[in-house]
Nucleic acid binder design. Structure first.
Length: 941
RNA sequence: GGGGAAUUAGCUCAGUUGGUUAGAGCAUCAGCAUGACACGCUGGGGGUCACUGGUUCGAAUCCAGUAUUUCCCACCA
């Protein structure tokens, strides 16, 4: 026996208890009325849970035991999640935290449900943002990427990526996530890249990819085209300039045009009006002079012009506006591009050549004013497209790009509409379908170096614009010297969209087999934010439908089923601060995830996040919730600690074995076990619907309220008296609580699992099956538990609550000197009021009576309860009690009246279902009885 | 302009297909060193369920309209 310390039960000696903790069983020494405990060490748990002590230990153990490895176990159902790949050089932020906590929860939950769960992790090469970063790094060293050239730049970028990449994975491990770390993917890995290029080549062959000169969104900072999805509309305050265009055929007359962009005037090739516009009818077909030049341009009519905006006349600049471009096409107008790629004016800009577009806007407006062409300026607010990356207005620009006409659009719609792929919350399906209904071709080429270079080669001796001189393949032409590869790379999202099968090595069949594609695919759940529903979710569905299985132009429903990338999509909310603002660096409102883990522990953080993440809504981050998460962990810790302080440990046994050892269960025991079953049933039901917070809430309430607050207290005297059956029930409950909570809070549950000795061998608990409600029912069957025990326990609970209320309302009677006297409704209930209840109430005596006493009293399910001071009753203040009773009588009166009026209505009796009517009757009777009893109490006071 | 969502206690949210007098956590107030836990325990106060109508025996719940907030899509220069 190992002696660990001495604990004095004196107030001044309490400090000692904090220094060292004690376990069971205490040997009590008597020092003349003051007792001291000396305890042998059986198990050691600190008084307060300290996450730091266990987290690294267990994460290491999980890795050492290959807990997260992919295992193709045909006997088990598979479960798979492909993690949305974070940017390779990204660092953990709050969004990742929530997203990955949810995924880890689902994965661990699946493991406990007997599935072989695989969580595939990987990183994204993050095209533009990564390239910009590397350029900046180079610039710091005084290096310009154009001087070192493409190859050197890429070398440097790879180096930089390898050096700074993967930090996020290290951070994620702190959170406890259980990914298959041995097989992580990066979108620029060789095999994955082959997949990306294969997708391009296949789609090209199938006629979905084409090259064309079209209007694209041009980012003047990143100097690349962007897809429509990468453009954000931002309201801007600007000016609307009214400009005179002199008529050629009618000297002295003019047509007024309103524009927000005078700097594009040098690119004007026409003025257009609506054909139905009476004001301008006779001008159509004439010409006007482009301001600040002598060039005549035609006045044309086009339906696209709105009569009621500005003057109703629109200047047409096909190179700088989408609608203008379309009008230009319809009327065969020339295209004059007046801007350089970086947004400065080019040679068409004349005296403003080289000036930035916004400076030129002011300069040209000023000039127009000077030469008398500016009629007026108006303040004007409009939406301007911004480049998400460069954070500058994008420029609609005509350029040569690669485009994808999406395949399998109808099938992608059908998959989600038909519920083959389910969205949670469901409302996102509508947004998804709407996007697909209005889908535009995807500009997939980017004028960058960092990424997958477009696998198209142009014959050196042929016409680049003639596709006969193109070579399109993954490996390129054999005689490379005669070819030049396309300079551009693919949009990052063009690599992400094959993620769910690319991570299995697609299209390499042997790699796919080896990596478990046939077993794990389609993946089960995708957890992501709704902000990338178009960027990523929809495109993955399309890619999967197109590439999984043989080439087919259209798919039937059952074929769709076999080609989907995932079955369920869970959309998380966006994390905001407690004021509802987005987390941002400039606001400084984003907490540092690692600091939170440091402060509250990974479990506390996970729990807090899950508690504050309502289903289908944004998450308002509040550190107080993380604190709550930590507090919960501490509560759990102490519940286990309490169990360990008791004598024997019945842990190392299966649930069945525990059940077999039980001799007799009291109603309290039965009640908690029945509640345990109900708890598990509720948790599973909510988990099945991804209602994580509700699932957690159920487990929380069961553990804290039903178990700790009631059952532990009511069974304490039995447990501390070493009663075996009660101890076994504690073990059964704790065992299941730990298993149920393990997916939410893996570290602390693992620690306690082993500390309590529930583990068979030293196996990590993730491999333990967590019994479902029906399993529990079957296992508990030999116990022959009665539902009525729930009622009995509830009546006791009600009695205790009534007494507590009475005690708190009669504070002048100190609880130590208080005496509870009960006038039982049913004398048979006397045995229900046991020592345990006395202890719970902290009163020394509970007596019984048959009389009505002139004492403060209340009504409980077991009977009328009186309170008296030991010795004399006069110490009590009766007046406040009287007021309370009067208030209650009053409330009961209202309730009785309500039910009476209900029951007196023939309509109600006739039309309401029987059980509702009966319920009302019963309520009425009960309340009348209760009111009478209260009136009696009042009279006796 | 089109569509979605939200509106319940001071705050954050639950509230199953309509059925007792609407719940929880936090906050607040009062009490409590009780042989697991003060990161705790016990009790109290606090709500015209945004508003207006309608359906119904019965509405926080269903329907219509209004208001406010918010997100997404479109983009009229």
């Amino acid at each position: 026996m190992q002696w660990v310390g001495i604990f004095f039960s004196l107030p001044w000696a309490r400090g000692l208890a904090l220094v060292k903790n004690f376990t069971i069983p205490p040997i009590v020494l008597d020092f003349g009325g003051k007792s001291a405990y000396i305890q042998p060490k059986m198990s050691e748990l600190a008084k307060t849970f300290s996450p730091k002590d266990i987290e690294d230990k267990w994460y290491g153990a999980w890795l050492a035991n290959n807990c997260f490895d992919r295992a193709i176990e045909l006997a088990k159902p598979p479960f798979c999640i492909a993690m949305p790949p974070p940017n390779v050089t990204g660092v953990l932020h709050m969004g990742h935290l929530l997203n990955n906590t949810l995924q880890d929860l689902l994965i661990r939950y699946a493991r406990h449900s007997g599935k072989s769960a695989l969580w595939i992790a990987g990183t994204d090469h993050a095209g533009i943002s990564m390239q910009v970063r590397v350029e900046k790094e180079l610039a710091k060293k005084g290096i310009d990427k154009n001087t070192i050239g493409r190859e050197k730049f890429l070398e440097y970028a790879c180096l930089w990526r390898d050096e700074h990449g993967g930090i996020i994975f290290k951070q994620l491990r702190k959170l406890g996530v259980s990914c298959d770390w041995k097989n992580t993917k990066h979108t620029l890995d060789d095999d994955y890249s082959r997949g990306v290029l294969t997708a391009f080549v296949e789609l090209y062959k199938r006629g979905y990819i084409y090259r064309g000169r079209r209007m694209v969104n041009w980012c003047p900072v990143s100097l690349t085209a962007l897809s429509d999805e990468e453009v954000k509309m931002v309201p801007q305050k600007g000016k609307l300039y009214y400009v005179k265009y002199w008529l050629v055929e009618r000297p002295g007359e003019c047509i007024a045009v309103a524009t927000t962009r005078p700097e594009t005037i040098p690119g004007d090739v026409a003025v257009a009006v609506n054909p139905a516009d009476e004001r301008y009818k006779d001008l159509v077909g004439l010409h006007c002079v482009r301001p600040l030049s002598d060039t005549p341009i035609p006045i044309i009519a086009d339906e696209a012009v709105a009569k009621n905006f500005g003057t109703g006349a629109l200047k047409i600049t096909p190179a700088h506006d989408r609608i203008d471009f379309e009008i230009g096409q319809r009327h065969s107008l020339p295209v004059i591009d007046v801007l350089n790629p970086d947004g400065t004016l080019n040679e068409h800009g004349g005296e403003w050549r080289g000036m930035d577009r916004f400076d030129a806007r002011n300069a040209i407006a000023k000039k127009l004013g000077e030469v008398g062409l500016l009629i007026k300026e108006e303040d004007h607010e409009n939406n301007v497209g911004f480049s998400e990356r460069g954070n500058v207005p994008i420029e609609p620009k005509l350029s040569e790009q690669w485009f994808l006409r999406y395949p399998k659009i109808e099938e992608a719609k059908a998959a989600v509409r038909g519920g083959i792929i389910k969205f949670y919350p469901e409302r996102w399906t509508k947004i998804y379908l709407h996007w697909l209904d209005n889908i535009q071709d995807w500009c997939i080429s980017r004028q960058l170096w960092w990424g997958h270079r477009i696998p198209v080669w142009y014959g050196k001796n042929g016409d680049k614009n003639d596709s006969k001189n193109w070579h399109v393949s993954v490996d390129g032409p054999a005689d490379r010297e005669n070819w030049e590869q396309d300079e551009d790379v693919l949009d990052t999202w063009f690599s992400s969209w094959i993620w769910p099968f690319g991570v299995f090595g697609w299209p390499d069949r042997s790699k796919m087999t080896e990596s478990g594609f046939d077993y794990f695919f389609p993946t089960d759940d995708l957890v992501t934010g709704p902000d990338i529903i178009f960027f990523w979710v929809a495109r993955m569905i399309i890619a999967s439908l197109e590439f999984i299985g043989e080439e087919k132009s259209s798919l039937a429903m059952d074929e769709i089923k076999s080609r989907i990338p995932f079955k369920n999509v869970y959309f998380t909310g966006i994390i905001r601060d407690s004021l509802g603002r987005k987390m941002s660096k400039s606001l400084g409102n984003s907490p540092e995830p690692l600091e939170l883990i440091e402060k509250y522990g990974a479990d506390g953080l996970r729990l807090g996040l899950l508690m504050m993440a309502p289903y289908g809504q944004d998450v308002l981050f509040d550190e107080a919730r993380i604190l709550q998460g930590r507090n919960f962990c501490n509560k759990l810790w102490n519940a286990a600690r309490f169990r360990l302080m008791q004598q024997s440990n019945h842990g190392k046994a299966s649930l069945q074995e525990l059940v077999a050892r039980i001799n007799h269960l009291e109603s309290d025991d039965q009640a908690i076990l029945l509640q345990l079953i109900a708890c598990k049933r509720n948790v599973d039901a909510h988990m099945g619907k991804y209602e994580i917070t509700s699932a957690l809430q159920r487990a929380h309430t069961f553990f804290w309220n039903s178990y700790c607050d009631w059952y532990v207290e009511v069974s304490k005297h039995r447990v501390q008296g070493g009663e075996r059956d009660a101890l076994i029930v504690h073990d059964m409950v704790m065992r299941q609580v730990l298993l149920t909570l393990n997916p939410f809070i893996p570290f602390i549950t693992e620690e306690l699992w082993h500390a309590c000795g529930y583990g068979r061998g030293n196996l990590p608990m993730q491999w333990e099956y967590c019994e479902a409600a029906d399993d529990l029912l079957a296992i508990f069957e030999p116990l022959r538990m009665k539902e009525s025990s729930l009622v009995e326990a509830e009546r006791k609970h009600n009695f205790v609550n009534a007494c507590r209320l009475l005690l708190s309302q009669n504070k002048r009677i100190s609880s130590k000197s208080a005496k509870i006297i009960v006038n039982l409704c049913d004398k048979g209930d006397e045995n229900l009021i046991c020592d345990a209840l006395k202890r719970m109430l902290n009163v020394s005596t509970i007596e019984f009576t048959d009389e009505e006493l002139p004492l403060p009293a209340t009504i409980s399910d077991l009977g009328t309860v009186y309170i008296a001071a030991n010795g004399s009753a006069s110490a009590a203040s009766l007046q406040s009690r009287r007021d309370k009773i009067l208030k209650e009588i009053d409330e009961l009166g209202g309730l009785i009246a309500l039910n009476e009026s209900k029951l007196s209505s023939a309509n109600f009796i006739e039309k309401a279902p029987e059980n509702v009517v009966d319920g009302a009757r019963k309520l009425l009777e009960d309340n009348i009885v209760r009111r009478e009893a209260l009136i009696k109490i009042l009279a006796s006071l």
